[in-house]
Amino acid sequence: MTLDDIPDYDDLSDALREDRPLRRARAYRIRFALDDLKFRKLDVLDPVPLGRQILAAAGCNTNDDFSLFAILASGDFEDVRLDEPFDLRARGAERFVAFQTDRDFKLRLDDRQIEWGKPAIGGAALYKLADIDDDKAIFFQERGGTDQLVEPDDLMDLTDSGIERFITAPRPNATCTIVVNSRPREVDDRHVTFEEVVKLAFPGAHDTNVIFSMTYRHAASKPHAGELAAGGSVKIKKEGTVFNVTRTVQS
């Protein structure tokens, strides 16, 4: 193979999916994220980079206090030492997460050990790491207590002594309380449609010349506030999502 034949990069995601070793290339493509877990593609020049070189390629100031972790194929987090080589060809890791911190916190998610660089972890981050279907949920295993359902907008404290434990399990059926035209109403789903809210606001049949308009706020879905049109739906919080519905009669 001549220099002209060497590809610009080889992608670790492709190599893992195709169950093959990394090919010789000018660079090696990994996925990198900070604590928001918004992974982006990142090219490193060496197949056995130092942790510090990965941070530098990501534009991080390596003089700051950063912790770097590789997410292995098993889902476990492995500490990447900044001044030690990490062999991309042998570890089966394509994703890396960095935290600007001087302390790490340990937690378990099912059978995976995760090291987190912040004293709290958001439910949204846990769901990203779990990568589960909508019919499943994450639960916090409280010591000596009842398992606590974790929602994406929750913030879980990791500062207690010991390792916090989370598990995934089928999502329980539970009612949610929304407020429709200043009145609390219970619904059986985390998603509600325009038509369902109209029925709660104005029960019964309506003439064809009646038009409804609707606004909402404090929703779980994004945007968290706005207008909802016929045929639309929003994801609600367990409590506190507010809807205002108005009725207009066309002449």
Rank of each mutant, 00 (worst) to 15 (best):
D4A: 10
P7F: 02
Y9C: 11
Y9I: 04
L12G: 07
S13D: 12
L16R: 03
D19N: 15
P21V: 03
P21L: 01
P21K: 02
R23Q: 11
R26Y: 06
R26D: 08
Y28A: 11
R29P: 02
R31N: 10
L34H: 07
D35Q: 12
D35F: 11
L37I: 03
K41Y: 08
L42F: 03
D43V: 00
D43T: 04
D46G: 04
P47G: 01
V48N: 14
G51C: 09
G51H: 06
G51W: 04
G51F: 07
R52N: 09
R52P: 00
Q53G: 02
A56M: 01
A57N: 08
G59L: 01
C60M: 10
N63C: 02
D64V: 02
S67E: 14
L68F: 08
F69Y: 15
I71W: 01
L72N: 04
S74P: 06
S74E: 10
G75K: 05
D76E: 08
D76N: 15
V80E: 09
V80D: 11
D83Q: 12
P85Y: 03
L88A: 00
R89P: 00
A90S: 14
A90F: 00
A90G: 01
F96Q: 09
Q100F: 00
R103L: 07
R103V: 13
R103H: 13
D104C: 14
D104S: 15
D104V: 15
F105G: 06
F105C: 06
R108S: 13
R112T: 11
E115Q: 09
G122V: 03
A124H: 12
L126E: 10
L126K: 03
L126H: 09
L129E: 10
D131C: 07
I132T: 12
D133F: 02
A137M: 11
A137Q: 08
I138F: 05
F139K: 08
Q141I: 13
E142A: 11
R143K: 13
R143Q: 11
T146M: 04
D147G: 05
Q148F: 08
V150T: 08
D154E: 08
L158E: 07
L158M: 07
S161D: 13
I163H: 03
A169P: 09
A169H: 14
P170D: 11
P170I: 11
N173P: 00
A174M: 15
A174Q: 15
T177H: 00
I178S: 06
N181W: 04
V187Y: 03
D188W: 06
V192G: 05
T193S: 15
F194K: 02
F194A: 03
E196I: 01
V198L: 01
L200Y: 09
A201F: 02
A205N: 12
A205K: 13
H206K: 13
D207V: 02
V210M: 05
I211N: 00
S213K: 08
Y216D: 08
R217V: 11
H218R: 12
A220D: 07
P223W: 01
H224P: 02
G226A: 06
E227Q: 12
E227D: 06
L228M: 15
G232Q: 15
S233R: 14
I236L: 03
E239S: 09
G240K: 04
G240T: 08
T248C: 00
Q250H: 04
Q250W: 02
Q250R: 09
S251Y: 04
